[in-house]
Design a protein around this nucleic acid. Structure first.
Length: 523
RNA sequence: GGCCCCAUAGUCUAGCGGUUAGGACGUCGGCCUCUCACGCCGAAAUCUCGGGUUCAAUUCCCGAUGGGGUCACCA
């Protein structure tokens, strides 16, 4: 049996689509599962400018996710080059061979000619089939057509009868009738090559054993198989994966429909969350660069690759009826195309977040601190570079924040009030907890009491507060909320005494004073 | 519109003739508690429809319906 080789073939668009990642992941896992090779081929047949710039973010995304390729850009390989734009000689040779074999012909029809024929067929109510009347058999024909100012392309001479059965590892056997296929162009008038030709030649040259790709290529497969056969290549195995669908719908997920997806509550929530972090760290965002459909979004906001990979794996594949979390090793050990789902799966950002929260729980505190620091620095919440003392403080903040840190970027949202002097007040919370009848008085009382504390650690503070409450004859609940809002600006967060202690006596007092001032001013 | 694919709760899925249709996210309720988060407990919610085949269909077959993909000198 020949070695297993799979590939993913991104075109350099400047960003890595979440659906593309899933396709790549399945290819990668399949190759790893069978001890084979996974390679990256760059589909830049018609891109001309800035391939490098448009490719960099994609390669970066794969590195970040830990999807490493054995051959391709950066790493090279025995079948180099892996860029289609550098393989024209190979494609030309293939076209010549197909032409010589009589599986294709030079065609001089103009777009209008084809249009006319198509319309006529439609009017007559029969399926369209090109008459091949501008087919040039001889150099004389060519010369004549060219004299008329026509420009030739190379078209496949597709069979017009019989059926084709494509064995598909996900879908079983898929049947097509040749008569329904068209004479597709494989080489343009300007001499450049059409994707399908390039793709088939490359897959053969790179010895790809399994073509695992998204479902939208299923209808393209007959023409590709025809090219394979006309070149005398062995047929690779095919597996067409269901595509990743829009949140809450079954339409294919698209990179350019951010507006529409924002109408989905969960999608909007994840996007808003990311946006808040981006704003806090002064990250300039555009819909192009900051979109939850793009993996870059998750990296910038501080998600874990493991969470994304695990989530994506389960989007169209399952191990059994209960396994949710798999390590890379388990994924590789268990992945199989047989267990790939047939139907498209909607991308659910809320569930992705659940995986993220799960994986975040096993990140060691030291790593959380290290990953939080850059966010704090960029948000100018701490000095840069941070001093050892600040780092220690951050470690305490991270500890106290605990599971509230869902992504690393959350440090600048959830943890902001631990830093600096001023604090952003949640007006609604302020009205409810500080402007409430009697609240300000109790807060002022507590402030005076707080001012004379000599110990300000959380445990002592809590203990002594109890005594204060007893003396005043009030319950903790009657004081805690106003203090929290005054000191942290928010009605939710870590335990109050942890907050007080970490923020420090002076700052706490200042913030309470400001809150009291604010409460006295117009409601 | 032609061709092709698909169809279990709002979402991701398990199921491969006989199950109280299992799990997860989300939602709702409760516990914990100074709030939030975590955690724990519980609840509501699913086999698209119609024909067959069979003693028995979510499961097999056919059809309908619905959803989607694709029909370029794009990839």
């Amino acid at each position: 049996m020949s070695p297993i080789r799979t590939r993913f073939a991104p075109s350099p668009t400047g960003f890595l689509h979440i659906g593309g990642v899933r396709t790549a992941l399945f290819n990668w896992l399949f190759s790893r599962r069978h001890g084979g090779h996974f390679l990256l081929r760059i589909d830049d047949t018609d891109q001309q400018r800035n391939v490098e710039a448009a490719l960099a973010p994609i390669l970066h995304g794969f590195h970040w996710l830990g999807i490493e390729w054995d051959e391709g850009p950066e790493v090279g390989g025995p079948h180099a080059p892996y860029f289609q734009s550098q393989r024209h000689a190979r494609y030309q040779a293939a076209v010549d061979q197909i032409l010589a074999g009589g599986f294709a012909y030079r065609d001089y029809s103009a777009t209008e000619d084809m249009e006319a024929e198509r319309k006529e067929a439609e009017r007559a109510g029969r399926p369209f089939q090109y008459s091949r009347r501008f087919l040039a058999n001889t150099p004389e024909d060519q010369a004549r057509f060219e004299a008329e100012g026509r420009r030739g392309v190379v078209r496949l001479k597709m069979p017009r009868e019989g059926t084709l059965v494509i064995p598909d590892l996900v879908r079983g056997e898929v049947e097509f009738r040749w008569a329904e296929e068209q004479d597709h162009v494989i080489q343009r008038a300007d001499g450049s090559f059409i994707y399908h030709l390039a793709s088939v030649v490359d897959d053969h040259d790179f010895a790809i054993s399994h073509v695992i790709r998204a479902e939208e290529h299923l209808s393209n497969t007959p023409r590709q198989i025809f090219i394979v056969q006309s070149l005398g290549y062995p047929l690779p195995a095919y597996a067409h994966l269901p595509y990743v669908a829009e949140p809450g719908s079954k339409r294919k997920l698209s990179k350019r429909k951010l507006e529409a997806y924002l109408k989905n509550v969960d999608f909007a929530k994840v996007h808003a969350h990311g946006l808040a972090i981006a704003q806090a760290i002064g990250l300039a965002v555009t819909p192009e660069t900051f979109n939850p459909v793009t993996v870059d979004f998750y990296e910038q906001v501080g998600y874990l690759p493991e969470a994304i990979i695990n989530y994506l794996l389960l989007l169209g594949w399952s191990l059994d009826d209960k396994t949710e979390f798999l390590s890379r090793e388990q994924m590789i050990e268990n992945f199989s195309l047989e267990r790939v789902t047939k139907g498209p799966a909607s991308f659910d950002p809320a569930k992705l977040m659940a995986f993220q929260a799960h994986y975040m729980q096993s990140v060691p505190p030291s790593v959380k601190v290290a990953r939080a620091i850059p966010y704090l620095e960029r948000a100018r919440l701490v000095e840069s570079p941070v001093t050892p003392a600040t780092e220690q403080r951050i470690a305490r903040v991270v500890e106290v924040l605990a599971d509230r840190l869902k992504v690393f970027g959350d440090i600048v949202i959830q943890g902001a009030f631990f830093f600096g002097d001023e604090v952003a007040i949640d007006e609604k919370a302020f009205t409810k907890r500080v402007r409430a009848p009697g609240a300000a008085e109790r807060l002022a009382d507590y402030r005076q009491w707080l001012a004379v504390r000599s110990a300000f650690d959380a445990a002592t503070l809590e203990q002594e507060t109890q005594a204060f409450l007893v003396a005043k004859g009030i319950a903790l609940g009657e004081i805690v909320h106003a203090v929290r809002v005054a000191v942290t600006g928010s009605s939710s967060g870590p335990g109050l005494f942890d907050c007080l202690s970490l923020i420090g006596q002076e700052t706490c007092l200042r913030r309470i004073d400001r809150a009291l001032e604010k409460a006295r001013s117009a409601a």
